[in-house]
Write a protein that binds this DNA or RNA. Structure first.
Ligand SMILES: [Mn+2]
Ligand SMILES: [Mn+2]
Ligand SMILES: [Zn+2]
Ligand SMILES: [Zn+2]
Lengths: 160, 160
DNA sequence: GCACTTTTGCAACCCGGTTGCATAGGCTCC
DNA sequence: GGAGCCTATGCAACCGGGTTGCAAAAGTGC
């Protein structure tokens, strides 16, 4: 595979040769990246588009499958860059592979932005339950709380 | 390393050549294993003893370090056997390596036996909060709940 | 065009976990 | 106490997800 960073060609491969100017979504993608101080390269636009196109969280392997023409490392670093700039957050749902989901516009990845995640045991999709804050718990005395990871397993609405 | 299953020698290595008959703890270890239908071999007794000697959860790597003379695979399978027979349960605290902790005597690893786990961000020890049941949460409609993994990070009583 | 920075590709590595297979240990039955 | 059997152990190799080092390509400013 030859490196190829030209945006329209990259997008063309994905989008049946519809080039940049014909993408109405393009501006919002661009904007979403630049808002978070991420330079909008071809791969990054594609990855962001993937995130915006589906509700379920996305793992590195998913991206590898979806973008045959992009390298694993590049996709990996794209995820890291997105995470650093708080465009996405990582989710450890216990399946052994990290997944990522878009942060909400207002998100700053502070403890208040933490929320419950849901893993469907049938379709293996993972969802952010953004409206389900993590409940308070009582720790033993002399233990102090920093952060909480809460993953609920069950059946999603499609699988039940 | 030569395989060696003789219990007293194994225990001797660990216990400065105090042999089986001189262990007051021996019977309770034996008992705890046979209660769960696990044949009390040398390695198993040692591993169980390790679990009973400390409160914090134990990972495979810990066992490898503690028992130079025992093979990784054997220790791995010992953990699996213990888990299958519900003598211990596994804890995924997000550190990348599974840890294990003794089940309570009454434990049957049913959803009711689930509890919160605590990972200290300083000493990296993980504890069962057996007295901290996992709080109820409200799922979106059409989602059904199966199980929950809840890991709290913070400072333990020794590290604060 | 040229020099410089950033992004991408490729290969190799790391680590925790897991498997296949051979051997040793211990147990039963005679 | 030996033959046969089942289990536990050891060893080596593998696997998958993640990560790093380094070189080439692409983008940027002049
Ligand atoms: Mn989320
Ligand atoms: Mn526990
Ligand atoms: Zn589902
Ligand atoms: Zn601590």
């Amino acid at each position: 595979m030859k490196p190829f960073q030209n945006i329209s060609v990259y997008l063309g491969v994905e989008e049946n040769n519809v080039i940049k100017e014909q993408h109405p979504m393009q501006e919002t993608l661009d904007q979403r990246l630049t808002e978070r101080n991420i330079k909008p390269t071809a791969v990054r636009l594609l990855v962001l588009k993937a995130f915006m196109a589906q509700e379920a969280a996305i793992g590195l392997a998913d991206l590898e499958n979806r973008f045959d023409h992009a390298d694993k490392t590049t996709l990996y670093r794209t995820l890291k860059t997105f995470e650093e700039h708080k465009l996405i957050h990582s989710i450890d749902d216990g399946t052994g592979a990290l997944k990522y989901a878009l942060c909400q516009e207002t998100c700053d990845c502070t403890p208040e932005d933490l929320h419950v995640h849901f893993l469907c045991t049938v379709c293996n999709k993972t969802f952010c339950l953004n409206d389900t804050p993590i409940p308070q718990i009582n720790l033993p005395t002399d233990f102090s709380l920093d952060s909480v990871n809460m993953v609920v397993k069950g059946l999603c609405s499609d699988c039940r």
